[in-house]
Design a protein around this nucleic acid. Structure first.
Length: 666
DNA sequence: GGGCGGCACGACC
DNA sequence: TTCCAGGTCGTGCCGCCC
């Protein structure tokens, strides 16, 4: 928080602590904003979160200063030039203004909270929040009167409202009710756009024409219909475009609606005093920048100062696309900050599993994997790698994610996330290689590929036939994660049998399926009870035993762990390229000349083994500590680009869209 | 040197 | 007592390639 400049502010430092909690939100009109701000400030002060917020605030302030100085350098001729550019742009957009459509934005009222009240009527009339002590997802209107709202930490909410009842999130329930609402929406617009579980945009133009009714009537009918089907209330906005409809749906919340007539005068009047913060896409930071750098508070201000916006912001597209295609898919989890490598690798494995499950549910695979980390001091880092082929299995995700994480260690983290982008549908892992690298050619062509891609019946059978001895004393466990992630929708199918005695793992094979599953610690017991963990089906945190003695090491005995000289004798016992090309651990096939790929592959197994050893749960495994193969310096970290400099001189802030929006959409 | 893809950051809901 | 999310997307810099 920037230090207060005035004596008054110095006496009330919370006034300069900018949170999102005091912004206008439905149901929060009568809230004592200063009180909320003071409590939030007092409860945050001195924390690491607070310190990080201060850093961010200082950064924004510099950005504003930088923008101001660039603004000051503009000559009269510059301003005149950009004013012409702005005027021209406004004229162009005005020419494309379309007032013929009737859009309805439907927004469920305090959706999660309302669903919870529906299933537990005793909550009715009491202040309640859905979420936990660390974070609230939404709050009902009774709680909002106290200043409690979404994205607020629970402990602060409790301070604001000591009687607040916390209810844990239950997305199964919310999805169920969301589906009910969507069935209603479909009747009015088969192509409606679901913006989230509780919001949708409907183009009611056709239904109005067909029935000879106006948008207002359709909105009323939809709301009544939703209420009848779900028992929940919603609010609606009717306007000539989606952006305005969204703004309108917030005006008479809850259980109300607002109609903006389809004529230019009404639209221009409506937006003239509309605060910029009401526009979707303008949040805390951009509102701050526009206000402090240019004095822009309303949409009208924005149009009037169009020359500055044209001068200082780059152009970008405005309205939301007609069909929003998913560009990436991600999963992240927060936990108590720790530098414990075993824990971090275990988390990484969990997240890889969850992400893979999500991807397969949607039939996606992708080429770019991004690791997101939040350090104990709330610093956010991302590290990405783009692969030559599409991936979707948890095993492959973990393989590459482990390498990215390894490069960051040691570090104390409070969040790990994984994101896959460069998506392609039908994520069965057998997508053609976009860059036509020989590795995939090798894998996807011929019999060899079948063994890998068809996992169960081929790979499983091949491996079990050739290399596995199902013996309690000399055994191998294998992370055959494709078994779960690709072919088994029911996660419980993945857990066939398990037994581990004296830290030895066992594997089971029922002919078609193979899966490692072992329970050694109470932690694993807990995991089994954990619904999320059960969905994962595979657990990288569990110790994996590599017993060289049971492998058929014929001609490939000396072909160990790629070409890296760091391969130790231990590794020789643990890992080999069977018949010169097949990984003894997972059956992956790579010919000897795929030096780099082999190196990556061995890195993956080593990372896994390190993780497992450090869990300290398997004494026998821990005795087989391998040397860590040094990461290829050209891999992610070595190639990492210079970190972005703060406060770039260039046109960084993507706020041109505000200007564009201001004219195009209103 | 222009185009383009990869990567990091951070804005937004 | 508890002590600040998760998911997605847009933008710009940088380096590689033609």
């Amino acid at each position: 928080m920037a230090k207060s400049d005035t004596a008054g502010e110095a006496a009330r430092p919370w006034q300069s602590y900018h949170t999102v909690y005091t912004n206008a939100k439905a149901g929060m009109d009568g809230v004592d904003k200063e009180k909320v701000q003071r409590i939030v400030y007092e409860m945050s002060k001195g924390s690491k979160y607070f310190e990080n917020e201060e850093r961010k605030e200082a950064f924004i302030k510099q950005k504003i200063d930088n923008m101001r100085s660039r603004c000051a350098k503009l000559t009269g001729a510059d301003i005149s030039h950009y004013q012409k550019v702005a005027d021209k742009r406004i004229l162009e957009l005005e020419a494309t203004r379309d007032l013929s459509r009737i859009w309805i934005h439907v927004d469920m009222d305090a959706f999660y909270a309302a669903v919870e009240t529906l299933s537990n009527p005793s909550l009715k009339g009491k202040p309640m929040a859905v979420g936990s002590m660390s974070m609230i997802s939404t709050a009902n209107y009774e709680a909002r009167k106290f200043g409690v709202r979404a994205a607020m930490p629970g402990f602060i909410a409790r301070k604001l409202c000591p009687e607040l009842i916390f209810v844990p999130t239950d997305f199964k329930k919310y999805n169920y009710y969301s589906d009910l609402t969507r069935k209603v929406f479909q009747k009015y617009d088969p192509n409606f756009m679901a913006a989230s579980l509780d919001e949708a945009y409907l183009d009611a133009t056709e239904v109005c024409k067909e029935r000879g009714v106006i948008g207002e009537e359709v909105a009323e009918e939809i709301r009544a219909h939703v209420n009848k089907e779900t028992g929940l209330t919603c609010s609606a906005g009717v306007a000539p475009n989606r952006l305005l409809a969204k703004v309108c749906s917030d005006i008479n919340k809850p259980n109300g609606q607002f109609v903006l007539p389809n004529n230019r005068l009404a639209v221009m009047t409506f937006i003239s005093s509309l605060p910029i913060r009401k526009i979707g896409g303008i949040g805390k930071v951009t509102e701050h920048v526009l206000r402090d750098a240019f004095g822009i508070k309303t949409c009208e201000d924005m149009i009037q100062k169009g020359s500055y916006i044209c001068a200082l912001f780059s152009s970008s597209t405005a309205d939301t696309p007609e069909v929003r295609l998913r560009k990436s898919i991600s999963n992240e989890r927060t936990f108590s900050a720790t530098g414990n490598k075993t824990f971090l690798y275990r988390k990484l494995g969990d997240i890889a599993d969850m992400l893979s499950t999500d991807m397969q549910k949607e039939g996606l695979c992708g080429r770019t994997l991004t690791l997101k980390l939040k350090t104990a001091s709330f610093e956010v880092r991302t590290r990405a790698v783009t692969l030559p082929k599409y991936i979707s299995s948890s095993e492959e995700i973990l393989k590459h994610a482990s390498k990215l994480l390894k490069a960051e260690l040691p570090v104390s983290l409070r969040l790990i996330g994984l994101r896959v982008s460069h998506l392609n549908e039908n994520g069965n892992g057998a997508q053609p290689d976009p860059t036509q690298k020989t590795l995939t050619n090798f894998i996807v062509s011929g019999d060899a590929s079948k063994k890998v891609m068809d996992n169960h019946s081929s790979l499983g059978a091949v491996i079990s036939d050739c290399y596995f001895i199902n013996d309690d004393e000399t055994s191998i466990s294998i992370g055959s994660h494709d078994t779960c992630s690709s072919n088994h929708r029911d996660p419980l199918d993945c857990i066939h049998s398990s037994k581990l005695e004296d830290s030895n793992s066992t594997f089971s094979s029922d002919g078609d399926h193979m899966e490692k599953f072992q329970k050694t610690t109470s932690e694993n017991e807990e995991k089994t009870q954990d619904g999320v963990a059960q969905l994962l089906g595979a657990d990288y945190s569990l110790p994996v035993q590599f017993e060289g003695s049971c492998l058929d090491r014929s001609e490939s005995e000396t072909d160990v762990m790629g070409s890296n000289a760091a391969s130790s004798s231990h590794q020789g016992e643990l890992f080999s390229w069977l018949n010169g090309y097949m990984c003894s651990i997972c059956g992956m096939e790579l010919p000897p000349n795929f030096v780099e790929e082999r190196q990556e592959h061995s890195d993956f197994h080593l990372a896994k083994q390190l993780q497992e050893e450090e869990s300290g749960t398997d004494l026998r495994t821990s005795m087989l500590r391998p040397r860590i193969v040094q990461k290829d310096p050209n891999a992610s970290q070595g190639k990492r680009k210079k970190q972005k400099l703060s406060l770039k001189e260039g046109k960084h802030v993507p706020i041109d869209l505000f200007f564009v929006k201001s004219s195009q959409n209103f």
